[in-house]
Nucleic acid binder design. Structure first.
Lengths: 121, 121
DNA sequence: ACAACGTACAACCATTTGGTTGTACGTTAC
DNA sequence: GTAACGTACAACCAAATGGTTGTACGTTGT
């Protein structure tokens, strides 16, 4: 079953919002490089444990990291597939830009033999 | 002269924040595909002109679009180079993940001639 | 048993965000 | 000239954000 547009957009909202904070980007870098417990992550930043725990929760809700429980620790690990999905979305944006170029090519090609103006989009 | 880390991070904050709103992503799609005046963009959305104008300003401050003045109109155009820069940042995140894999490879390689068990599980 | 640790979450606070309306000002059309 | 258009920006408002402290609860070590 395919995702609706608004579901895709909601995921994108969560992705970009999660990435729009430098502390969260830094956490993501660390957990992509390897598993870290939440408290180990917290020690790296000049803010309370609770603040870091909330950042991790934002990344988790966005699907950019997953946690597994080991004893009293929660080990966080970055999800590279999700990161790739964000990249795909940007590539799709680039494709729109390439579309503009091809349309300019068409205009150029059309002009050479019709000399009429084309209607606007 | 190279950019400082915090300048890069500030740019990334602006990029991802700008992309974290679906109206802004939609505007960016349109202006990547071709130039649009702010009022033409505004007609596409169920919100005030001022609201759309502010979204355009956010995208502009993030460097994702540029405006040029033509008479009384402001024509907005998407900056594909900036979009690519965002993509590069994600690729760098992926590289960290690949680093994790190579480290696992190293461990594995070490195991083949030391025959010791790895510390975890 | 119990103290320390790691996690989760609620309540609170200041700031930012995304929307609104209103105003001002240059440009275009009549 | 003047009315309509396109833009910009200020002031305002409700909701969300990013931080805090405090509390609760399971796990680990002594």
């Amino acid at each position: 079953m395919t995702e609706t547009d608004s579901e895709q957009e909601a995921r994108a909202d969560a992705w970009f919002h999660a990435l729009a904070d430098r502390t969260r980007r830094d956490i993501l870098r660390r957990v992509l490089a390897g598993e870290h417990s939440v408290s180990a992550l917290a020690q790296s930043y000049d803010m309370s444990f609770a603040a870091v725990q909330k950042h991790v929760a934002v990344l988790e809700r966005a699907g950019l990291l997953t946690k597994r429980r080991q004893g009293r620790e929660a080990l966080a690990s970055g999800d590279v597939e999700a990161v790739r999905s964000v990249g795909v979305m940007l590539t799709e944006l680039e494709a729109l830009w390439r579309g503009r170029i091809s349309r300019m090519d068409e205009l150029l090609a059309a002009d050479t033999h019709t000399s009429t103006t084309t209607e606007k989009d």
